[in-house]
Design a binder for these strands. Structure first.
Lengths: 242, 242
DNA sequence: CGAGTATTTGATGCAGTTCAACGCTCGTGG
DNA sequence: CCACGAGCGTTGAACTGCATCAAATACTCG
């Protein structure tokens, strides 16, 4: 059976700010359906004017931009709870593409209802803006990583970031978590070549800091990784779920 | 005399979506004052919990993040009309610092009034979200530039982007515009060393594409630069002014 | 089992970093 | 009024982190 907001499996997580009953009722109406796609499916296309917004319910994906000559920049990895497509919803056109890296289920909303949210549900509108501000914050951090850090620091940074997101979603088991991406995806996210990414991953394995194979990421020493990457391990703030 | 929204010098520009009289009246109340600072002044500090938001009225500045060991990432250059501090306003804490590169005048708003905007001025709330989405879009582009392009492409990209913003604000005279930043600022924005930035600027000068000296940027061949940087020169969309 | 996709490894080269030094301009204080 | 130092831009030389090229080894799936 499709999830109906009331029984949303994400809502209960500590990561998310609880919704009032009113808000849940509103979300039920706002939600127009559910979309399940196979791994590899393109869900949003750069430049497209999608009539839909999504919240990731299950599965993982990635946002990316294509440049000429096949160069690609992965902008972010997507986890359950991520709100996708707000750019198109607000600005009229997607500025990056979105693709499923696993089988995914997404809650679907209509872009045409956004104005209604701003008009009648200011709290939910505020929460949407929060999402956008949070993404802006993340991109600033990513820019700093790619602009200023070495290859090993960048990879350590990405691993810590990814792992902590997974933790907050109860997707980890001890030191491990599912990592359904390809090395090429990570390389494209960090502005590194595939070859160098592979060799740097080997270094982290040799140093007993992290290993990633067969779709499983394992962080053997988060503290050292965090230190290497210069990220602080402070508790992540609660965030709204759309 | 202080500007009072009605006689705001920015409002009339084609770049900005016109405001209704109601909205102007609201902005007058929302605006709590005006701040003028000398060049070099720090206006917002990363990690601070600023009670204020700003719209740049005059002057230019830059947003940046500091990393350990003095590494710095310039996140964006700020122009008149830019809305600054929304992150702190929404998420409670600034994620980057902001500094004036020239003498600047800023319109000041109270963070505590934001909720009031969402509650009573949904159109203005929507516009704030638009700002945030636009910044997110820009950061995605910047990420792609730094992650995927060579030094000369990055610099060409930055110059075209900066010049086109200035054009939309009538800050250009023919091929020229004021460029009150240091080479180090550009280097830190593009993830390049100062030395290499300098040498790459020399290349662009030799190629007769662009020259930058004495605080003036001159683009001799925007088309070639845009082609080199792989940016498209499409007309920029109108955007809201806060 | 063969074709396509992903990971791994070695070898070579270069774009960009780092180090070092010099020139110019401007503000400050003796 | 000049000396001095600080900040910024410029240039040369040497080094290196990472890209590129090439090829072998797994893995997956029809």
């Amino acid at each position: 059976m499709a999830t109906n907001c009331t029984n949303c499996p994400l809502r209960g997580l500590d990561l998310f700010v609880p919704l009032t009953e009113d808000e849940v009722a509103f979300m039920k109406r706002f939600k127009t359906g559910e979309l399940t796609v196979q791994k590899g499916t393109q869900i949003l296309m750069e430049g497209s004017n999608s009539p839909q917004l999504f919240t990731v319910l299950r599965g993982m994906g990635l946002r990316y931009k294509m440049l000429e000559e096949g160069r690609r920049q992965v902008v972010n990895f997507a986890f359950p709870g991520d709100f996708i497509g707000l750019q198109a919803g607000i600005m009229g056109e997607m500025k990056h593409s979105f693709e499923a890296s696993t089988k995914m289920t997404l809650c679907v909303f209509a872009r045409s209802d956004i104005w209604n949210v701003f008009k009648n549900q200011p709290q939910r509108a505020f929460d949407m803006t929060w999402s956008s501000a949070a993404e802006e914050h993340f991109l600033g951090d990513a820019l700093a990583s790619i602009g200023q850090r070495t290859a090993i620091e960048r990879i350590a940074w990405a691993m810590v970031r990814i792992f902590r997101r997974a933790e907050a979603l109860n997707m980890t088991q001890g030191q491990s978590m599912p990592m359904p991406y390809r090395q090429q995806d990570l390389a494209d996210a960090l502005g590194l070549s595939l070859v160098h990414t592979n060799k740097t991953l080997a270094k982290l394995r040799d140093r007993q800091l992290a290993s990633w194979s067969d779709g499983t990421l394992r962080l053997m020493n988060v503290e050292k990784l965090a230190q290497l990457a210069q990220v602080d391990l402070e508790q992540e703030e609660r965030r709204p779920l759309m």
